[in-house]
Design a protein around this nucleic acid. Sequence first.
DNA 1: CCTGGCATGTAAGTAGTTACATGATTGA
DNA 2: TCAATCATGTAACTACTTACATGCCAGG
Lengths: 181, 181
Amino acid sequence: MSLEYAILSTLFASPCSGYDLAKQFDGSLGFFWQARHQQIYRALNKLETQGWLVAETIPQQGKPSKNIYALTAAGRAELQAWVQYPCEPPMLKNELLLKLFAGELLSRDCAIAALTRHRQRHCDRLTTYELIAQQDYPDVAQLSLAERMKYLTLRNGIRYERDRLAWCEEAIALLAATPDP
Amino acid sequence: MSLEYAILSTLFASPCSGYDLAKQFDGSLGFFWQARHQQIYRALNKLETQGWLVAETIPQQGKPSKNIYALTAAGRAELQAWVQYPCEPPMLKNELLLKLFAGELLSRDCAIAALTRHRQRHCDRLTTYELIAQQDYPDVAQLSLAERMKYLTLRNGIRYERDRLAWCEEAIALLAATPDP
DNA sequence: CCTGGCATGTAAGTAGTTACATGATTGA
DNA sequence: TCAATCATGTAACTACTTACATGCCAGG
């Protein structure tokens, strides 16, 4: 269900097309929710049928028509209800942990190589997040309540990636320090 | 695909029934991969058809027959190949972040209440993990390589929950400190 | 001339959830 | 008597991915 609400909240910020939504999911929104255009177009149809949004078709020359979607009053009410509704932290699914848990079949070198790759990915993501923080949130004290909430999603990412990075390093050190059997 | 390999690696440790596998997913394995019995039984049939495992049916009185599954040589080879194959860190999907990102529609109290709930969940999980660490891994220096790998999955959980906890607290403090507009 | 951006979709498949179903045994 | 545990499954559905499809325009 969350995809639908992610779309509603993006359209609440400003009406746009399916294509524009897909770009949002490729940007900051994608840091905590992902969706491809196929899924987005399907969801938009469903939401329109439910009466939570309306489309305005804008013909363009040389390009296919653009459908600009906007929230209806019912859509806004739904979104409002959803943000207040309690939710649970998600369960994790992590392939690397599954492989480490297999233990006996994995060589030390192979495990360290995998951890090093992961370390690099987290490092890259962290760099991205920190750059955004610097550019978009230079002075946290000046932020309004709503801006602070958005900022917290970024802080979440920064903390998360730093923590993953630290775990990878701890893990590599622990495996490297294992005496040969 | 990972579910199949999670099953293979559990059966590699020791052959067991679908029911037993489901219990594994309710335990430690569930900390980083989840599956219900319906999904497990379907996957077992698929894996058997592929020739990666074999079933031995054990009749029981008063209970339905038990199917004990064990890896074949082909299954073991597949598992061995999979653990070595590089994988990417998973993308996160987090409903709470989606709600914070909606910002404008969420009241301060509502956000703080949600964060407090999450804080509690992470606190509970952390307690569970730390108890397991104490009981199962009292002396890390003595662990073999394979045991260290398993231990690292637990360390991952401990670090993760501590970090989530810290973020929740940071978030609550930042929202609480917002001056009234 | 070819790539990338704009803009929309269908179709088929995989992964996972929810609901339903059966039936004996054991312990409170 | 009631709930829980053991042990297996089917059916229907939701969520998400991958592959395929169209067609014009702008810029290098």
